[in-house]
Each structure stands twice: as structure tokens, then as C-alpha cells.
């Protein structure tokens, strides 16, 4: 049991100052920008809630948000079952376990822009291994820089490549915590593989899977560097996800007002999911 001690505040103070400097000042600035208009030189004019109204009703924002949701749900539907299946097939102990873990974690440690460049090189027609294989061996017309469908598939496969291991590692951590006695009891009862999964493995994995799903939801919702390096948001706007669009408006066009309003809407979504994550986590901690 924790003890009541307000000295905790002193311990937390450095963190508080550093994170407040990085989070509160920018947040305040964004709120200020979101209700004003500027033509540079730090001269601001009141704009009211016009930017919010404009962003919430703009086709461009709806399209980016739609693409973002489509992307996030697609990768969740692929990565979560795939990750669980691979975790179930992994050996429980022995020499190969650490080897598997290290190799699987490797993609997650690669700088995000290198992931994008790597997949770009990998999928270039004629030059890349995959591009060559699809175009010249299988005869499928594939060019991610020209065809929106190819670009979408590439971005999704890239994310699956990059982050499925997160689900595998978490699900595996849940699986190895199941005592051997459970499986023996199930064997004696003559339980099928499915009921072992449904009644022993899945409940044990519930907590880690919740973490995995929320983390994947959040990180894929914030994704910027990988798809930007791979496709630059194109061809056209077909892979312009929410973050890419925001950076385009904020740093590309330097439209501070609309960018700030969009940031706040984005932030509201993030806040709700973080809250869900936190509530589920702390409920299980008790």
C-alpha cells in the first residue's frame, strides 16, 4: 500500500517543469493561434471560431480523417490476429526464443524515415526486389509512385512489417506467463486446441492485447514519417494521412490559424483514446 506523502511533489517537480515547458506552452500557443489570423511578423487579428468551422466542414479534412481511420482499422485488423497467431506458434523455451525475439524486434528499432526509404528501395519497379518480382516475374502492373492502390497496399504492408512484432512480443509475454499446469489440466480434460485458446490463452492475453491494440491505434493514428518518406502523401493525395496533411498546412503553407484548429481537433481525439488507455490500465492494476 502506498503512503500518503506530499513530498512526492518534490520528486515529480523536474518532470513537471520539463514536460510543462514542452507541452503547456505549445498547447497554449496553439489555442491562441486557432482563434486568430496572421499575415506574418507576429501580427495577429481575431478570427473567432472561423477556422474550426472551416476545418470541420472542409472536404480535405474529411478526406484525410477518412483515410486515417481506414488506415488505422486496416492495420489493426491485420496486425492483431497475425501477431496473436505468430505468438501462439512461437516456441515457449529453448535456444531459439531469444533469437526470434531479437530478430522480430529489429524492424521497430529502425529510424522511421529509414523504414520509408527502405520500402521505397524495396518496391521500386525494376530496381527493388519486390517491384521487380511483381512486375517482371509475376507480370502484375505495380508502381507505387503512380497508382494509388499500389501505394495504399505498400503503406499498409510496410506498417504490418514495421509493427506486427509489437503485437507478437506483447501476446507472447502474456502467453509465457501461463503456468504449465493449466495446459496439463486441459489435456486431462481432453480440451480441444480451440477451447485451450478460448478459455486459457485468450483470458491471459486480454490485458496485453488491450495494451497492444491501444498502442497500435494511437501510434498508427499519429503516423507521419514512414508514409511521408515512402510516398510523400501521393500519388495525388491518396496516402495523405492526418499528420501529413497537418504538417503540410502548418509548416508547408504556414497557415497558422487553420493548422492550429486542426491540431486541436486532432488533440481532442488523442486525449479521448489516452483516457481510455489509462482507465483500462489502472482498472487492471487494482
Amino acid at each position: 500500500m502506498k503512503t500518503e506523502n506530499q513530498r512526492g511533489w518534490l520528486f515529480v517537480l523536474p518532470v513537471l517543469i520539463l514536460v510543462a515547458f514542452n507541452a503547456l506552452i505549445p498547447l497554449m500557443t496553439v489555442v491562441n493561434y486557432s482563434v486568430q489570423e496572421t499575415f506574418g511578423n507576429n501580427q495577429f487579428f481575431w478570427a473567432g471560431l472561423r477556422w474550426f468551422e472551416e476545418i470541420l466542414r472542409s472536404e480535405r479534412f474529411h478526406a484525410a480523417l477518412g483515410r486515417q481511420l481506414l488506415f488505422t482499422f486496416t492495420i489493426l485488423i491485420i496486425e492483431v490476429p497475425l501477431g496473436v497467431a505468430i505468438a501462439l506458434a512461437m516456441p515457449r523455451r529453448g535456444f531459439w526464443v531469444p533469437v526470434c525475439l531479437v530478430l522480430m524486434a529489429l524492424p521497430m528499432l529502425i529510424p522511421w524515415n529509414v523504414v520509408g526509404s527502405m520500402w521505397n528501395i524495396f518496391t521500386l519497379p525494376q530496381i527493388g526486389l519486390l517491384g521487380y518480382f511483381l512486375n517482371d516475374v509475376l507480370g502484375i502492373n505495380y508502381d507505387m509512385t503512380q497508382q494509388p492502390v499500389s501505394a495504399w497496399i505498400t503503406v499498409i504492408v510496410m506498417d504490418v512489417w514495421h509493427w506486427t512484432s509489437l503485437v507478437v512480443l506483447l501476446a507472447y509475454a502474456g502467453l509465457v506467463s501461463i503456468p504449465e499446469a493449466y495446459y496439463q489440466a486441459a489435456k486431462i480434460d481432453g480440451a480441444s486446441n480451440w477451447s485451450v485458446f478460448r478459455y486459457i490463452q485468450l483470458p491471459k492475453m486480454k490485458r496485453v492485447l488491450t495494451i497492444a491494440i491501444l498502442l497500435r491505434f494511437m501510434d498508427s493514428f499519429n503516423i507521419y514519417t514512414e508514409p511521408f518518406t515512402l510516398t510523400g502523401g501521393g500519388p495525388g493525395n491518396s496516402t495523405t494521412l492526418l499528420s501529413i496533411d497537418l504538417v503540410k498546412i502548418a509548416l508547408g503553407q504556414f497557415d497558422l490559424g487553420p493548422a492550429a484548429a486542426m491540431s486541436l481537433i486532432y488533440f481532442a481525439i488523442t486525449l479521448a483514446v489516452s483516457w481510455l488507455f489509462y482507465t483500462l490500465m489502472t482498472r487492471d492494476d487494482q
Binding site: N222, Y224, V247, A250, S263, T270, W275, Y278
Partner: peptide
């Protein structure tokens, strides 16, 4: 320790881990 606002502080830290970097770039 338990101290005033500890849980909310802990949550606030999490929101910063979850926030999109694109929002903070500008």
C-alpha cells in the same frame, strides 16, 4: 507515495506520449 493529484499527473504524462508529434511541430 500517494500525493495530491498523482493519478491525474500520471495520466497527463501519458497524454504527451500519445500526442501526435505533428501537432507540436509548429
Amino acid at each position: 507515495y500517494r500525493f495530491l493529484g498523482d493519478k491525474h499527473l500520471f495520466f497527463w504524462l501519458l497524454t504527451n506520449r500519445m500526442a501526435p508529434a505533428a501537432v507540436f511541430a509548429l
